[in-house]
Computed example of a mutant assay.
Amino acid sequence: MTASREQDVLDLLVDQHNEIKTLFGQLPRAQGVEKRELFQSLVRLLAVHESAEEIVVHPTARREIDHGDAVVEPRKREEDRAKRELAALYDLGTEHPDFDAKLAQFANAVIEHASHEETEEFPALRRSSSPEQLRRMAGAVRAAEATAPTRPHPHSGESATANLIAGPPMAVFDRMRDAVRDWRESHRE
């Protein structure tokens, strides 16, 4: 087995949190095409990460940990706000004069959200789940990410059911839009 196959869901998600933080750190220093590409990477990572959490992690935490609703509901509200803010940033664009200030506010909220997950939800889930269950959940998260939308859809809902039903069609549409965008950008003169 490779290390990635042995990685449990919580380690996988913390690694993704660290990748998100790295992108937030790189974006303010970047300009032009590099900034746009870094932001597109951030948007994609956040969109698939949050969808996978909503499909796999939060429902399990709600069921398995003591006071699961009290732990999960605030995270879901934060994620719902983050989807709306990320969609607004996406619409604003990296060249807009307000982009950097709005990105900084958004980064602070996302990092705070990740901290809540890492100090509240994840340790409780680790205590209540077997190592094998956490490894299997990592596989489920990877599968969910493979079919998740690549940009935020704030009006699609944040429940596991909404993501399972609406996610794959939106993901296909998003990937088509991404391909067209990438083609256009590669053929600019």
Rank of each mutant, 00 (worst) to 15 (best):
R135Q: 03
L23Y: 04
D178Y: 00
S41P: 04
E95R: 14
E37P: 00
I165C: 06
E120S: 15
E95M: 08
S186V: 00
P123D: 05
E37L: 03
D100F: 06
E64S: 14
N108Y: 10
A3S: 05
E78V: 07
E79M: 12
E189N: 08
E117R: 09
P149K: 04
A114I: 04
S130D: 05
A30H: 02
L10H: 04
L89E: 00
R175L: 00
S156N: 13
H58W: 15
V56E: 11
S186R: 08
K35G: 04
A82D: 07
H153T: 06
A109V: 11
L103W: 02
K76L: 15
Q7D: 07
R81C: 12
L27M: 08
R62C: 02
A179S: 12
E64R: 15
P97H: 02
L13Y: 01
R177K: 14
A114D: 07
F122Q: 00
Q105H: 12
T161Q: 11
P123S: 07
P131C: 02
G25N: 04
L46Y: 09
Q105A: 15
N163A: 15
E19C: 02
I20R: 00
V72T: 06
R63K: 15
L45F: 08
V172S: 02
R151Y: 06
P154M: 10
E19M: 10
V172C: 07
E117T: 05
P123F: 10
T150Q: 01
M1H: 10
E64T: 12
L92K: 13
P59V: 06
I65M: 14
A52T: 12
H155L: 13
E73R: 12
L125R: 06
E54S: 13
L103E: 01
A30E: 01
E121G: 12
H153A: 05
P149H: 05
E120P: 05
E112K: 15
S4N: 08
G93L: 08
H116M: 09
T2N: 09
G68D: 04
V71M: 12
R75H: 06
D100R: 10
P123Y: 06
K35L: 10
D66I: 11
D174A: 05
T119N: 13
E185H: 08
A160N: 04
E158Y: 04
L10W: 00
V14P: 00
V110R: 01
P149L: 01
E64G: 07
V71R: 15
L86P: 09
L164M: 13
A146C: 09
E37R: 02
D182L: 14
L42C: 05
V72K: 10
H49I: 13
V9S: 08
E6N: 05
D91G: 15
R135Y: 00
V71F: 08
E158R: 14
P168I: 10
E158S: 14
A101C: 04
T119E: 11
K21C: 01
A70Q: 14
R175M: 01
D66S: 15
H155A: 08
V71A: 14
L86E: 08
